[in-house]
Design a protein around this nucleic acid. Structure first.
Lengths: 130, 130
DNA sequence: CCGCATCCCCAAAGATACTG
DNA sequence: CAGTATCTTTGGGGATGCGG
């Protein structure tokens, strides 16, 4: 993972790509962060904490994170049903990095927003509109 | 950004969400990382370093990063055309974090992959297949 | 009532071809 | 060389429904 060597591609030998790609998942980071903050969370609790994520997407995000071994899912055979989510050890180890990212965002957010705005106005807004 | 307070939602007051969402962009991190490693890169160089990204997607990723002020795009009025990409200062400030993420990935990748595999076999593969 | 699953839509990713 | 134009595919996201 140094420079371009051998094949000319950093990527193919780089399993990192897979993990990074996993966080291409729009809500993965935020989900991990929130579970990390809360310690133990239930599904609807999470859902309330992340209002702009539909339960369907939240569910699939959680499933992916569980599959990757980053979170633990504990189901209680009760009525009404109860499912708890918490970070695994490996998930915990990722938490500091996410926190740093969050801090970076807090620090640089304004600048990014401003720059984005300028960029919009300098270039044709019609082409760069969302 | 502590626990659930006031509104019950961490997010609405959390600009972090916006930045994170920006990196929901599948290739943003890797692109930043590679540009950071290389220092100054030209488009096709990047394209060669990231073979599984189409030029269309690469182009739009670069544009987004430029709009956010994370990379600088320098165009030379030459024939053949020449465009150079490099990190801005704010982009540089993000680089250490991405490197840490990369290291984390290198360390934990195998475990994640293994866990993912087990998860697949334990649950119905037909339902969890990509 | 909780934790999803199913249906459907749309934006973003991907492949391919083609220009200034 | 550095992209854009065009078309197809994938997956995020809302609405709704359903089993436990």
């Amino acid at each position: 993972m140094r420079k371009k060597e051998e094949t000319g591609s950093i990527i193919e030998m780089c399993p990192v790509r897979n993990v990074i790609a996993r966080f291409g998942n729009k809500w993965a980071f935020l989900t991990l962060l929130i579970i990390g903050e809360q310690g133990i969370v239930r599904f609807n609790e999470l859902s309330r904490l992340m209002p702009d994520v539909s339960s369907r997407v939240l569910s699939s995000t959680l499933r992916t994170l569980e599959a990757d071994g980053l979170i633990d899912r504990k189901v209680y055979a009760e009525v009404p049903p109860k499912v708890e989510y918490r970070l695994t050890e490996i998930g915990q180890s990722l938490l500091p990095l996410i926190r740093q990212l969050t801090e970076w965002a807090l620090t640089n957010m304004k600048h990014v927003m401003t720059h984005r705005q300028e960029y919009r106005t300098h270039n044709n807004p019609d082409k760069n509109r969302r």
